[in-house]
């Protein structure tokens, strides 16, 4: 059994350590440490149990005649009782110790706090993540989707809510899973110790496209983060050429504007992701596609082919309008 487990771990090691076991923050570090404790304790217990089992099996093969004499029986009986009691006590101690370790880690996970911390509100939707950077001044709040930027080395408060069904946020290198429940606010603190892009995933089955509900957490230096946030606060740039201007008209007069927002234009609907700075994002459709003009075109023409069941409908756009729309969306840096 343990051999199987070990070979499984080795197999996983072949494709790089699982993200949850290569932590990038203190929270995930705690969880990875706890995982290691549980894993190695389980390995030792498994090896010991299998060893004793083998010993018992082999011992029973001895001929009946070599059994201890009747006179020696009470002594062997007493030794056996002592052994079994010791093993039972040891098992109880190990189980209680594991429980204690688990409680301590849970407490440590809840201990991360910081006054005046950056607050990010994440709302789970079928099947994408709405992200809002909180600010006491409403006009300074920033809304984006499926991509979170955080400054390295700072604790960030993540508030979670859901609009339709239960989702669960899981960014393995940063934290464990936390459910997003409709009508019930939850929160967690994260902190990234090193810069990098960390993938996350919805971890609670939420419908047809649950598997295509990913997000990206990008940890960067404070300077880079501030620059990014300042860029996000700006309204969408005015289109400069005729093609992009036509694209904006297509967006505003067609079905796009009934679901999407582009700050700086009359489009202000909140059913779909905010597209104000779409061209600055890495992926489309919650991590389904890389954000390139070709993929964007395919996505706009027939989202149901790429992500069946997604709430974005297929709209009939002719080629010229599509190219204009792509030019406009591509300018939304």
């Amino acid at each position: 059994m343990s051999a199987m487990l070990l070979s499984l771990v080795l197999l996983l090691a072949g494709c790089g350590a699982p993200a949850a076991l290569s932590p990038a923050g203190p929270q995930a570090g705690q969880i990875a440490g706890l995982w290691a404790v549980f894993f190695w304790v389980s390995v030792v217990v498994e090896v010991a149990v299998v060893a004793f089992l083998l010993y018992a099996v082999l011992r029973a093969r001895r001929p009946v005649l070599t059994l201890p004499a009747l006179a020696a029986e009470p002594l062997a009986e007493r030794r056996l009782t002592r052994g079994v009691s010791a093993a039972t006590a040891l098992t109880a101690i190990v189980v209680v110790a594991l429980l204690a370790a688990s409680i301590l880690v849970t407490r440590a996970l809840g201990a991360l706090h910081a006054p005046q911390a950056l607050t990010v509100e994440i709302a789970g939707h079928q099947w994408w993540w709405e992200v809002e950077y909180w600010d006491p001044v409403p006009s300074q709040r920033v809304r984006t989707a499926n991509e979170i930027h955080v400054p390295v080395g700072e604790a960030v408060l993540v508030k979670l809510r859901a609009s339709d069904v239960i989702h669960s946020l899981w960014v393995p290198p940063l934290h464990g899973k936390k459910d997003l429940i409709p009508g019930h606010a939850t929160s967690l603190w994260i902190k990234a110790d090193r810069p990098g892009a960390f993938g996350g995933q919805c971890a609670e089955f939420c419908g047809y496209q649950h598997a295509h509900m990913r997000l990206l957490v990008i940890a960067e230096s404070r300077g880079a983060f501030d620059a990014w946030l300042a860029r996000q606060r700006r309204p969408a740039p005015e289109p400069t050429d005729a093609q992009a201007r036509r694209g904006r008209d297509v967006f505003l007069t067609g079905p796009c504007a009934i679901c999407h927002t582009i700050v700086g234009t009359p489009a202000a609907a909140r059913l779909g992701p905010d597209l104000t700075h779409l061209a600055g994002r890495t992926t489309l459709a919650a991590g389904t596609l890389p954000n390139t003009p070709g993929h964007l075109a395919g996505w706009i023409i027939d989202p149901q082919r790429i992500k069946p069941g997604v709430h974005m409908p297929s709209i009939g756009l002719d080629g010229a309008d599509l190219q204009a729309l792509l030019a406009y969306l591509g300018s939304l840096k």
Binding site: T253, G254, P255, A257, I258, P313, S314, I315
Partner: peptide, 8 residues
């Protein structure tokens, strides 16, 4: 009309 699709 024109804002939502026919299926919708």
């Amino acid at each position: 009309g024109g804002r939502i699709t026919d299926s919708q």
